[in-house]
Design a protein around this nucleic acid. Structure first.
Lengths: 345, 345
DNA sequence: ATGAAAGCGCTAACAG
DNA sequence: CTGTTAGCGCTTTCAT
């Protein structure tokens, strides 16, 4: 391996000390402009590449941020990541990304890897299985900031960026009630995940507030994938009376429900009104278009990253450190899949 | 800041030298089992965390791999990334991800960042604008492997993982011809991107082989986003005779075409047969279901990463170094959007 | 099987 | 504004 060009080589070349070279290269104010110029030129002509390992070792900072998501391959998550990447790159941070595949075991292992990689901060959307956060303890102890987004642990001492899931589903449920739905089924994911637990609450509250009786049979907890529609539809068709309102907690599954229902000759929204969640592309491509909850995913990525970085860069102010929860605005988008009485909301 | 626990502390604690501790912790064979155990236990009880900066500085390896994609937020790319992440994590590599936003300028800047971050290898799907690869020169010079996937530069000295785009569209075009389409329009992205240039070739060859005359008017080069369908449809409707076959180079746009056509009362596939590209979820959710080309995106991620890592880990064998191109299998999936004569392919 | 010593390349006190 | 010095924590000869 060829020898690396170091600041010592540059120093020798320009007849200055390594310190000055180091300062010049990192735009330290106390270096004369002419000196800096000379150094920068020499660096370029010698083909110098700063050694980030040495720099990190000395500064105890990696300038990188870890992100752990349940799955990389999801319209929602990839949109969040896009927002995060934009801000991180702008601010000079690298993004180290891994996925937990919805498994706590993998999340723990990923967390350890991130810790050992010495990321300056960690952004996490929790895997479903449990509410365990012991594996973040090393981060807490070392005061490396951990910020949760979307799927946050229940323990309320963790900073998180979320939407108001309860309110979102409250609104959706109320909308279906106003559309004349008498039996409303709510299909959602693993109830150990706060996101779904909160949505269930919103559903219950809305029913209550409108004089409906909550019936556990109307709650279907299921993996919300592409095939979910078939499974949900089969369950619905066995119910008496047959449900005429359906809340499905993501658009992929909502779209797949729509298809499964239509395949059986059941009309949407006349026989069953459907509301999805996320406002993914697909909600605008199926017919009828899906009513859904607009989830500001890209924005969530931006906000989460911006807060983390502010926290890292503001060495003095620790204002954000004690911010508990940042709630982003989400809103119900009403489209044809749930409009049973003309255009009314 | 509290003092870090180092191998010196462990050494002192167990009465051995730092060298032995280092060896024990990295599973060097020449350490007695009992000694290793003692060291590992001490490390644990002292709360030791290996300092990866020091280790990287010494070993000149970061154990991380950079990935640059045009956009994080795309069903195709996120699926590729998921495949990459799986393999990288398995092999003990971190994934540093950034997006070029389809801009050469950002790609160049991202490449520099990756270089300065000292990634052990780089995986790139090129931004569209040009075929420029000068910004990878520093990698080539230092013999840091760069592997392209999907969108590869034309210069044929770059290793790449691809599908046979020409063949894929050849098959799709032939299929439409066999379905009785007399005028076939091909909508694709920026023709400076090899992927689209190759597809155009496949389209031309298929026309030629079936006695059709190629007409440049039938090629629409356009940004393939959610709104593309409207733009494509407007163009088609101005053509005489009206096209009755349509190849759209991604499923999002193909689906949006489908909708735009249906909105205008044009029947698919009877009036216009459509074939998309990628086999995204959406192709199975619109009606009629989209015929499309199955693009093994997840697999492409796995293969690209596996090859890169093999290259990195096999210090002796440099077999893969001279592999030029790995072509993955893709295949036409025929669904209702292009079936004009019953079930025939 | 274990240890001593040197150095990877940088930055931050401190001094001038 | 510039320089001297020391050390971040690890791995790796080379020696025993």
């Amino acid at each position: 391996m060829k020898k690396e060009i170091t600041i010592y080589d540059i120093a020798e070349n320009v007849g200055l000390s390594p310190t000055t070279v180091s300062r010049a290269l990192s735009n330290h104010p106390r270096v004369q402009e002419t000196t800096r110029k000379k150094i920068v030129d020499a660096a370029k002509s010698l083909g110098y590449q700063s050694n980030i390992f040495a720099s990190s070792l000395r500064k105890r900072k990696s300038k990188s941020i870890g992100v752990i998501v349940p799955r990389l391959n999801s319209p929602f998550q990839s949109s969040v990541l896009a927002g995060m990447e934009k801000i991180a790159t702008q601010s000079g941070y690298n993004l180290v990304i891994s996925q937990s595949m919805e498994s706590l075991e993998k999340e723990i292992s990923n967390t350890e890897i991130m810790y050992n990689s010495r990321v300056d901060g960690l952004l996490v959307s929790k895997a479903g299985t449990t509410d365990d956060i012991d594996h973040f303890l090393p981060f807490f102890k070392k005061e490396i900031p951990v910020l949760f987004f979307d799927r946050t642990p229940e323990k309320n001492n963790c900073t998180g960026v979320v939407i108001n899931n309860t309110q979102a589903i409250y609104d959706a449920t109320e909308h279906l009630i106003k559309q004349g739905c008498k039996r409303i089924v709510h299909a959602l994911g693993n109830l150990q995940i706060n996101v779904y637990a909160d949505r269930l609450k919103g559903y219950k509250y809305a029913l209550m507030d409108h004089g409906f009786v909550f019936d556990a049979e109307n709650v279907i907890s299921i993996e919300l994938d592409e095939e979910a529609g078939e499974r949900i539809t089969k369950k619905i068709l066995k119910m008496h009376p047959r449900p005429n309102g359906l809340l499905v907690s993501n658009d992929t599954s909502a779209a797949s429900c729509l298809m499964a229902l239509k395949k059986r000759g059941i009309r949407v929204p006349q026989d069953v009104a459907i509301v999805g969640f996320n406002n993914d592309l697909i909600s605008r491509m199926v017919e009828p278009h899906l009513s859904t909850v607009n989830y500001p995913s890209y924005h969530m990525g931006e906000v989460a990253m911006k807060n983390l970085i502010n926290h890292l860069d503001d060495e003095h102010e620790e204002i954000l450190q004690k911010t508990n929860t940042i709630t982003l605005r989400s809103e119900l988008i009403i489209r044809d899949s749930s409009k049973r009485y003309g255009d009314s909301g």
